[in-house]
Each structure stands twice: as structure tokens, then as C-alpha cells.
Design a protein around this nucleic acid. Sequence first.
DNA 1: ATTATAAATTTGTGATCACAAATCAGGGGT
DNA 2: ACCCCTGATTTGTGATCACAAATTTATAAT
Lengths: 233, 233
Amino acid sequence: MSVRTNLGLARIARETVQERVYCALRDQLMRGGFEPGQKLKIAELAEAFGTSAMPVRDALNRLTVERALETLPSRTVRVPALSKDALQDLRETRFAIEGLAISRAASNMTDESLVMLKRLIVAQSETDEEHVSEESAEQNRAFHFAIYRQSGSTVLLPIIESLWLQFGPYLREASERFDGGDGRGTNFHIEMLDALSRGDAIAARGALEADIGRAFDLVMSDESLWQRRDGVA
Amino acid sequence: MSVRTNLGLARIARETVQERVYCALRDQLMRGGFEPGQKLKIAELAEAFGTSAMPVRDALNRLTVERALETLPSRTVRVPALSKDALQDLRETRFAIEGLAISRAASNMTDESLVMLKRLIVAQSETDEEHVSEESAEQNRAFHFAIYRQSGSTVLLPIIESLWLQFGPYLREASERFDGGDGRGTNFHIEMLDALSRGDAIAARGALEADIGRAFDLVMSDESLWQRRDGVA
DNA sequence: ATTATAAATTTGTGATCACAAATCAGGGGT
DNA sequence: ACCCCTGATTTGTGATCACAAATTTATAAT
């Protein structure tokens, strides 16, 4: 095989425009940058990104398959507006699947991965001091996925990413309501790390469910969201 | 709003070419019509379907996001060739997620849904008499998803479909090795139905795991699959 | 004034084309 | 005989265009 195209550096798949657009939209969705129910138009986004319609269309399709977006019968794409029942469904499914992931991770933890988790907790608590919820949310995500990666399951990870994307639009709301508090956002994380270091899958799962559950409680206690908005099937 | 475009009939989303291609490929994958590792080429498929490259590209992208296909670094698309570890991962994940679905279904069963499941079992056992594994696999799928639908979870269903798509290419192998047997393929189904009619989630889950586990055992005991083929990450 | 009809605009789908990267094949050098 | 380089072919990505369906806006009739 020729080495000419690869000058010693490990050649990862080349970056396509589609991927760039996809990542941008995905990040925006993950951090709650779009409103539930908001419609996304191809032409609009294409101009914003300075590309043609094609890569945007592909990115929207991909996010739709990942359940981060939904296609209405009229073929327009929007951010799903979840009903209370749908959110409850999402909560229980996240309990089950992420609980499974952390259970598996509990038997796979290494010293290095425990140290890394510790570092992530410290970093997030420092960020929380500054009340920068934007950055904190990203660190929260890093912490959780560092654990899920330790499950060693390549089947579970994309599923969990999809679940996070579905919750994304409601996450901003949760974190805004939350960080007015006493900055105890990493407490459950400390519990999780503690349980993981002991290899206690049950306790780890319990702390994780408390962590997830708190976010859902914050969102679902906001009555203003359920009166109007038509829920998704 | 104008009624002119909709003459009284409930207007379901119009059929696009992309959807037609997608469904065809999906069915083919579900029933094991493609070999693990097989490469799929856009131009080739486009000619076979009598369309341009565009809808085929979209369909392949969609299936890739659903993990039914994978994109190599060279941007070519192929059916994933799973390593033994990956198949084990898939098995455990299916246990957990489909087990969760049937557990939830156990508390939601109605008389009608029980009758329908009974009908599906009868139909499949009749088909098994004729040793038509093609048709039997489809009825097996119908039975399982009839249960999963009773879980009432719109979050779980697409996840389970993705898991089935990932196992699809290996399913043909399993069913071929299986139906040479004594046609006891519906026995676990009868157990499941029985447990569901009693509302016994634990027993239903056990029977389901036995059912899924048997298919995996058949596939994974075939040593000829693991020596060669490069597994997926 | 309200509602239904019709024209106009918007928006997504699918085809065709241009381009770039990857794969494959053949030839020349060691 | 083997390996590396180079050119030809294949294949996917992205842009542009034509078309059809849906939405919106304007107009007219009750």
C-alpha cells in the first residue's frame, strides 16, 4: 500500500462538509441551543454554514434517524416537542440503559480511568464556581461518557448518545434552574466515582439514577411546558 | 386551512423514492439477505432500483446511522462483520433492552393483544410445518414486535429495531441451522405468551432471553465465521 | 366581517454534473 | 523476482437545477 498519501500521521477519515455541519448542529442540540418544537429549514442553515443545501440535508436526515429531530408529515424538520408521557418514557429508558452501562463499567474500571474521572469531577466543580453552565454541561457530558465508555460496549454507546440528544433541548432548562442552587451538581458524580472504585455496581447505578432523575425532575416540574405544545407520538 | 388537497382520507406522509429504497434494503438486511462484510455500491444499487444515486445514498446513510451498515474510512459502505466479542456485546444488550420492553409489556397486556399474540404463534407454527424459514423469520419478527409495542415505549422501539438490524445478517444462518430441528421454534413464544397472560414479567423475560440466546448460540457456535473476517471496532 | 377559493411563494425531493480521493493495474527500477 | 511509483478507473461528495407538494398571502363571494 502506498504511504505517499499518509505522511506518518495516522490518517483518520477525512473531514467532509456534511460532518462539519452535523457536528455543529449536534452540539447545538446537545447543549439545548434549539427550542423544542423549533423548525429547521435547509436553505436557512445552508446559508448560515456557507454551504449548499446538500450537506445540510444529509445532516438533518442523520439527526432525524438519531431521534434528535423529527420529520413532520409535511416533510419539514423540527426539534421534537415531548409530551410529559414521552419524557417519562425517556427517563425510564435512560435509567435502564445508562444503568446497564454503568453496571458493566463497574467491573471494568482501571486505575487510570478512575483518576480521569476524578479529574473530570474536579474540573467541573471548578467551573461550577464560576456559574458557567454552558461549560459545566459539557463537562457533565464528558464525565458520564467516560464512564459509559468503560462499559466496553460499542452497542450501547450510540444508543446512549441518541438518548442524550433527545433530552438535549430540555437540558438547558434543567441546568438553568439548577445552577442557581448550591453547586452540588457534582455530588452524585462523587457518589458514582466512589461506588465505581469499590466495584459496587448497585450503588453506582443508584447514584446515576439519582443524577439523571434530578435533571428530569427539574424539567418536568415546569408546568409551562405541557399545556400548549403538541407532544410527539 | 384548505381541504382541497385532502379528500377526506387521512393523509399519511407521501411515499418518497428514498423510502422505497430504504425499506427494500432494510427488509433484505433484516432477513439476512446480505453477507456480513459485503460491500454495497451506490451506482450498482441505483441501477437495480431504477433510480438515480441520490435516494440510494440517503437510504445507505440512514441504515448506517441505524448501525445496520458501516462506513469504512475509505467512505465505502458495507455490512458490518461482527467479531465474537461484538456479537456477545450485542447479545447482552438485546437481553437487557428487549428484556426491559417485555417487562413493561407484561403490565400492559389486554385481552385483544393476548389474542393477537396467540394468532401469531399459531400462524408461525403452521409455517414451520412447511419448513419455509423465510416466512417463519418474518412471523417471528411480527410476534416479538407485537410484544414490544405493548411496552408503550416509543423510545425503546427504534432502539430494538436497530438491534435487530445489526443481528439481521447472522439471522439467516441461525434459522437455517435451526429449522432442521424439531420445529420447537415457537416453544419459547408459548412460554412468553403464558407468562404475559399471567402478568409475570420475570418469567416472560426469562423465556425471551432463552429465545434470543438460542439464536445467538446457533450463530456463535459456527467457528467458520471468526477466523477470517476483521471484526468491527 | 368572515370564509372559501386561488394565486404566489416557500421548501423539500430527485436528477445531473464537476471534482477529489481511493482503489486497481501496469511499468520501470533495484 | 520484488517493490515502488505512476496513471487510469472507480466511487463518493457536494453544487446546481427542475419539479412537486405544502404553506402562505391575496382576492372575491357570501
